[in-house]
Each structure stands twice: as C-alpha cells, then as structure tokens.
Measured scan of single mutants.
Amino acid sequence: TFELKGKVGKVVKIAEDHYLVEVEGDKWIAYSDEKLSLGDRVMVVDVDGLKLKVKRIP
C-alpha cells in the first residue's frame, strides 16, 4: 500500500464520511481535508492502513 503514495486516481463515490477512489484499477476508501466531487482527479498523499489520504489535483 505504501507504493500508492504519489499515485493519481479519481473519486468514484461520495459517502457520508469518506470517499471511494479508484487508483490503478482498484477502489480504496479515502479521506481528504478538502471537499471533493465525483470525477475529481486526486493524488494519494498518505496511506493509513487500508485508507488513503488524498488531495485534489488539477
């Protein structure tokens, strides 16, 4: 999972307290300090167990 840091993915689902992002064909639970929208491109900035911390990228 640490090899996911720096990888780019996209938001595929928005849940009440987390996001579902697809990175390299796999779906992961993710969270972010900013509000994300469906389809946003994101970069993995940290890995916390099986959850990814992501940030939006242009």
Rank of each mutant, 00 (worst) to 15 (best):
S32A: 09
T1L: 14
V12Y: 14
I57L: 10
E3V: 02
K10E: 14
K35C: 06
K53F: 15
K53V: 03
V11N: 03
V23N: 01
D48N: 14
D46E: 06
D26L: 14
T1A: 15
L50Q: 04
G49D: 05
Y31K: 14
Y19C: 08
D46G: 03
E16V: 09
L20G: 06
H18D: 09
E16Y: 10
K7L: 03
V44H: 01
V54H: 00
L50M: 13
V23K: 00
F2I: 15
D46R: 02
D48L: 13
V21N: 00
D33S: 14
G6H: 01
I57G: 06
R56A: 05
E3H: 03
D40A: 11
W28L: 03
L36F: 07
V8C: 13
G25I: 08
V45F: 11
S37V: 13
V12H: 12
D26W: 15
T1E: 15
V44Y: 02
G49Y: 14
V45K: 04
G9E: 00
K5E: 15
E34L: 09
Y31L: 06
V21H: 00
K27T: 10
V8K: 07
V12W: 14
S37Q: 13
L38Q: 08
K27I: 07
L36G: 01
E16R: 12
D48P: 02
R41E: 14
V8W: 04
K55G: 11
Y19T: 13
V8S: 09
P58D: 11
A30L: 01
V12A: 15
G39C: 08
D48E: 12
V54P: 00
P58I: 05
V21C: 05
V42Y: 01
K10F: 12
G49F: 12
E22V: 06
Y31A: 09
I57Q: 12
D17F: 11
T1H: 15
E22P: 01
F2K: 15
L52P: 02
D46H: 03
L50D: 04
R41L: 05
A30K: 00
G39E: 13
I29A: 15
I57P: 08
K51I: 08
V45N: 06
E16W: 10
A15L: 13
E24P: 02
D40S: 12
D46K: 02
L4E: 05
K27H: 09
K51R: 12
E3S: 01
S37K: 13
K5N: 12
V23W: 00
Y19N: 14
L36Q: 09
G6C: 03
V12C: 06
K51H: 06
K51W: 07
V11F: 02
V21L: 05
K53R: 13
V23C: 04
G25H: 10
K13E: 07
E3W: 11
I14A: 12
D26A: 14
R56Y: 05
E34I: 07
L4H: 01
D26T: 11
K51L: 14
L52M: 03
K55D: 12
V23R: 01
P58R: 04
K7C: 04
D40Q: 13
E22I: 05
V21A: 09
V23Y: 00
K55Y: 12
A30G: 07
K53G: 05
V23A: 03
E16D: 05
V23E: 01
I57S: 09
V8R: 03
E22S: 05
P58T: 13
K10W: 13
K13V: 09
W28T: 02
V8A: 04
P58N: 05
G25S: 10
K55E: 14
G9I: 01
